[in-house]
Design a protein around this nucleic acid. Structure first.
Length: 259
DNA sequence: AACGTCAAACTGAGCA
DNA sequence: TGCTCAGTTTGACGTT
């Protein structure tokens, strides 16, 4: 929610010293930090959700008083990790939002942005919706917001953050894959270097092979035998193909084991 | 109390 | 102009 959004609250404005401090931190270039900053006396979240307490859908019923709102979490919210997903699970019974918060909001205005925490039901519904489609059209957004008793902007932000989390997770998975790929390639490279050294040693100790064009000699990495393009029937040679057909190794038909 | 993590919310840029 | 995304801020909460 941008600061401009507060224009739609319909609430009176008031001076806020702490918000001035916030403002100074956030965008010193945009405004004179020493100018007093105007804020609303009630945050949009409180206004919206408090208004919604008159509604009757399950999410709204759940928020039948300010003490039950899926909102400001300077309450003693007990959270536990879902072992399988790592997602947070909140114990609804532990969710107690003090009435003082709303009173403070009324009296002193929204000093800083207050963080709300979605209820388990809200999160679950949003998750379900996200599974169906990771983006929402305005109608879907509005419908979901109505259903969950949230502002459309909150639904929008949730989807934004959810997409970001999904992308981050995917990036981590890709990163792991690339790491494994790198390790495999490194191993293969090491092995090939070793083979190359061995071949060079062979080249020095077995001059007969030097007579063959270099391109006709290859070593199969799987069986580690040298094969020649020219049929070599000298079965006594340690590099002979034992009468079998030539054993060519093609890197194209035998791609790297990596990846 | 300090620190780390997570998620809600904000901001600015890019795009159709 | 509205939407999405990447990056950032912020507050709550858990851990040490």
């Amino acid at each position: 929610m941008g600061y401009g959004d507060i224009c739609h609250t319909g609430l009176s404005l008031g001076l806020s010293s702490c918000d001035t401090a916030n403002r100074q931190k956030k965008s010193s270039s945009k405004s004179d930090p020493f100018l007093p900053y105007l804020t609303l006396s009630l945050s949009p979240e409180v206004r919206y959700q408090a208004a919604a307490t008159k509604e009757t859908n399950p999410y709204q019923r759940q928020a039948t008083s300010l003490t039950e709102l899926s909102s400001f979490s300077n309450s003693s919210v007990k959270r536990e990790r879902d072992a399988s997903t790592g997602e947070e699970v909140e114990d609804e019974e532990e969710r107690v939002v003090s009435k003082e918060i709303s009173d403070d909001q009324d009296e002193e205005g929204a000093c800083a942005r207050k963080k709300l925490r979605l209820t388990k039901e809200q999160s679950a519904t949003l998750e379900d919706s996200f599974k169906e489609h990771s983006t929402l059209n305005p109608k879907q957004k509005q419908a979901l917001a109505n259903r969950l008793n949230l502002r459309p902007r909150q639904v929008e932000v949730w989807f934004q953050n959810r997409r970001a989390r999904t992308k981050l997770k995917q990036t981590e998975v890709d990163c792991e894959l690339l790491k494994k790929c790198y390790e495999t390639l490194t191993d293969e490279n090491r092995r090939l270097q070793k083979e190359l050294q061995e071949l060079r040693a062979i080249k020095l100790t077995a001059p007969v092979y030097m007579q063959l064009p270099a391109a006709t000699l290859t070593m199969c990495p799987s069986c580690e035998r040298i094969a020649g393009g020219v049929r070599d029937n000298s079965s006594k040679s340690p590099f002979s193909i034992n009468g079998t057909k030539s054993h060519f190794y093609s890197p194209f038909t035998h791609p790297s084991a990596a990846c």
